[in-house]
């Protein structure tokens, strides 16, 4: 009999059945075994085959763990949540998302900040937070077992959104406000889900609408050096009272 494991995301339990015996170990403290055989998500052998091609240097259990990000995000849409590729950290009670493709300096900015101003920020997750728009208008940011290469994350940490900063590597440090209309396409591309049905598309659009509308938005071309982190910090600390775009 296959064991079933559960992980809680934004208060919603998702049950997994794994193809590989060791996959659950990648989920560390986020996962717990549950009784019964019913599950919500299981990777298929076909999907594993695709995953192996995308991640040829990794073991099957890690490939399965990575494949489960998108399946989980898609499952979360039914509760109006999704996973958004970004580093999420808390600064003075608000969650800030640094959104960028892998290898663009999300973790570098976090590490720089920790070194320059110790104890000021704490990582929710280094790679894949859950976005949860709430009825009261806030957007809560939660941790997930996918914390990035460096494994930065805190299972018990969550916070309302302060804002989202799109990171871009460049030869200069320039932070500028991002208009909602400029955010739509990049934000869609950072959402870790490709919706399969009209219902899912509309659910994802609703999450993106709330994510774009609930916090400050900026685009930050940066060199990843200490001065760039000070610019980022000044933007975030200076805007911590803000709630609307502007």
């Amino acid at each position: 009999m296959k064991r079933v494991f559960a992980v809680e995301y934004a208060g919603h339990e998702v049950r997994y059945s794994f193809l590989c015996r060791r996959t659950w170990l990648n989920f560390r403290s986020y996962i717990r075994p549950v009784a019964g055989e019913e599950f919500d998500i299981c990777a298929t052998p076909e999907l594993m085959e695709t995953g192996r091609k995308l991640l040829p240097e990794y073991r099957d259990d890690y490939v399965e763990y990575r494949l489960l990000i998108e399946l989980t995000s898609r499952h979360l849409l039914k509760w109006g949540c999704c996973i958004f590729h970004s580093a999420a950290f808390v600064c003075k009670g608000k969650a800030w998302l640094l959104a960028a493709p892998s290898g663009t300096g999300k973790t570098t900015q976090f590490l720089n900040w920790c070194q320059l101003h110790p104890g000021e920020i704490e990582m929710i997750t280094g790679d894949m937070p859950v976005i949860e728009p709430r009825e009261d208008g806030t957007v809560m940011i939660h941790s997930t077992p996918w914390c990035g290469k460096e494994n930065f994350g805190n299972k018990d940490l969550r916070a309302p959104l302060g804002g989202v900063i799109l990171l871009e590597q460049g030869g200069e440090n320039r932070l500028e406000p991002l208009e909602p209309r400029e955010a739509v396409i990049p934000f869609f591309n950072q959402a870790i889900v490709t919706p399969g049905t009209e219902t899912e598309i509309r659910a994802l659009a609703k999450v993106m609408d709330r994510l774009i509308g609930a916090g400050k938005l900026a685009k930050f071309i940066n060199k990843g050096d200490d001065p760039s982190t000070e610019i980022l910090r000044a933007f975030i600390i200076g805007n911590r009272e803000g709630g609307a775009n502007g």
Binding site: P195, L204, D209, I212
Partner: peptide, 21 residues
Amino acid sequence: PGIVLTDICGENILVAASSLT
């Protein structure tokens, strides 16, 4: 079928379902 017009913060977006990507 599978292309959906939706609205995000007042912006009109066409989104293709995963089968069409």
